[in-house]
Design a protein around this nucleic acid. Sequence first.
RNA 1: GGGCUCGUGGUCUAGUGGUAAUGACGCUUCCCUUACAAGGAAGAGGUCGGCGGUUCGAACCCGCCCGAGCCCA
Length: 877
Amino acid sequence: MPSGDYDPETVEAKWQDRWVEANRYAYNGDAADPDTAFSIDSPPPTVSGSLHWGHVYGFTLQDFVARFNRMRGEDVYFPFGYDDNGIASERLAEDELGVRHQEYGRREFQEMTREVCDRYEAEFTEKMQRLGISIDWEQTYQTISPEVTRVSQLSFVDLYDQGREYRQRAPAIWCPECETAISQVETEDDEQPSHFHDIAFSIAGREETFTISTTRPELLPACVAVFVHPDDDENQYLVGERAEVPLFGQDVPIIEDDRVDMETGSGIVMCCTFGDQTDIEWYQAHDLDLRIAIDESGTLTEVAGEYEELSADEAGEAIVEDLDETGALLDRWEITHTVNVHERCGTGVEFLVKEQWYVELLDKTDEYLAAGREMDWYPDKMFTRYRNWIEGLQWDWAISRQRSSGIPFPVWYCDACDEVVVADKADLPVDPLVDDPPVGTCPECGHDEFVPEDDVFDTWATSSLTPLINAGWDWDEGAEEFTFENPELYQFDLRPQGHDIISFWLFHTVVKCYEHTGEVPFDSVMINGMVLDENREKMSKSKGNVVDPDEVVSEFPVDAARYWAAGSAVGDDLPYSEKGLRAGEKLLQKLWNASKLVESLTAEAPAPDAVDHHDLTELDRWLLASLDREIERLTGWFESREFSKARDELRGFFWHTFCDDYLEIAKQRIRAGGDGDAAADSAAYTLQLAHRRFLKLFSPTLAHVTEELWHDMHGEESVHTSGWPDPLGIDADFAAGETAMAVVGALRKYKSEDQLPMNEPLDRVDVWGDISGFEADISGVMHVEELNALRTRPEVESVVTGVDLDYSLVGPEFGSQVPDIEAGIEAGEYEVVDGVLHAAGAELNADMFEIEKERQYTGDGEMIESDDAVVIVHREA
RNA sequence: GGGCUCGUGGUCUAGUGGUAAUGACGCUUCCCUUACAAGGAAGAGGUCGGCGGUUCGAACCCGCCCGAGCCCA
């Protein structure tokens, strides 16, 4: 039985422990029917640090959906993954241990990374459980595990068999610090200080020179062309000539191209293989030479002549000095500009020509767009981002990485002819560095020596398989086909994630799963916004505005944080807000206190099956019928993931209609009635029933307090599996109920304004308005000695104060005449004849306007007017 | 630089063409009413980011600008 103040600290921890111990949220799995299984595929958090607000927010929203669907009888599959196979986890290990991966052997460093990740993963588990997220803790996976490795390698083999993967020497984005190729999406922009250089190039075969501007003089040895903009009249004479590169002497063409930025420097630029993306485009478009001057580690190659072996920075300085000496350096000044850096280490990226594996995307973008369109998007508007991303795609997807840790390519190459040998599906997972290829001799040339591929997959190549991992996708050797261990889970009902990862994570997942199964992996995606600080700005360590969820959860109830998380439209960014948490805390208290009162009033409540709903009092039926309407609305909001509407609506109904209006009356009635009093029994029954239903309705959001109250008061196992309430289908006179509540409100206001205590008796109250069946309840709660229903409206003196137009009718009918009509009314130049208003030459019929009157009551007592009723209070002086 | 999104009383939020703009937090005044003073009643507080346009009528539609967020260059 609830007593005293609510103690969330004890209560929440208790239920979190019990839920985990009892496997409360375990997926049953016996329903093999996809219609009764509700499956969720969350992107597994990258193991690169601790839990942050983004996790708390995202998982809390998912939990609302999970709990709601569990209440509706679905067998909810809510697994949890740890994404620990990528560069991010290696970085974590390096930072945590203060080491660099190059200092260790591959195996050794992998083990070090595993140890660090294990610690972080245990912490993650603990914290997720402390948030009360209803995850099935028997369904967890790590993306580095052998099982997932098998799935990931199967995916590679399948796509290779389908001809959707290819290996090519092509310009790749390269991080010289991490010494790996990275994808376009792993780079970001950074403002960095640099220098601009004006360098004199000579026109081949002439004495004449011209000026190019560059920030990267170390790339002079890689220069393969010079470009001029077609609109650049001043320099047009150069086009078609050839230029001689200073110091290095190569002879390169001068070409026109509209990708030249005329505003920067001299407007003439050199093209090097490769300095940036545009260089690559030019290289491909104009079939230029390839001169690789910088290698994998950022060191100059033999192409750079005497500068070979220098680092790019050193070479840059040396070249500038030498240019200066020969007089070719015309100018040099400091600038800051944006450079492309690797998001994990902040090092400026290079472009190298390497053998890399690619997944082909560009040929099927239309299909992938259609696949995205098949999913339900919450909110709808986020589909635009998916579409824009696909429409802007320029590159196929580079999936090879040169790292210590990660999932290896199941591939060997013939040492003689370079033929690709792929592992047999039955043998997966394999590590080509350890395992032998599936053939003894090359099927192409018969050679018997093989070179293992030592690259590993891009982390997204695996992260994009989570629906397949979760549904137990595997190759059946006997049947020679791919199968699912739990086919009922696929397609997944819900994909929850942030809007920041639509373009790569979601997109890649759709692509991969679609190619493997021919089906779109998700029925619906729910896109959440970012958590900002209290001033609506991004939380970042450098700004120092990061709020640690741990500290907040130790200070506030988890349910309060859940209340906050339901506080804005899904997809919009949500500012962290202590006020929001406090509001949540207050609601918990209110729910607790109201429950205590309900408990004390319902000790003598009749058994549920002893009551016929037709026998309940008018007010009780009104409350239950109103709750019916509430349930229907709430169900709709949950289905459309409009949690903030559900939250605010339920809170308002509970607090005001139930607590302020109904509960006060029921309390009065039960305490006034004796044993066997029918009206008291009716109230007790209604209170108990309504209270059960409120707990169910609150349970997806306020998961802990509802569980505690349910356990205490209704004694059954768990509110979270107690079933979502269906409307009872009770009839009630809503109009009379609302009028009755308005009368109570009017009397409360009267007492308040006259500074009377609420339990001050009133001698006599006359009411004009429909309150039939509610008289006794009104009298009881407002302590009215004599309540009279008037048959006629009380006599009042009316003064016309204005005319209220219904613009939705007047506007379309009279259009531009409206201002004239308004002016006429304003000036008093109008008259009403037979219900028709004449003004400014127009005739408005009765439903287009209403005459506003101010009423004055001249009879005995004091008149209070409310929406649907007139109330007159008589009191002895 | 481009795309998408958001911008509503001090703070957060509802509201996508019909005219006194929703609710919460905070604030002011009053009330100990035996569930709750972390409560109840009443009240103050808004040029709906800015400017222009469309319309009889705009928070809502269009254009430009400003600020914030995400993604991309």
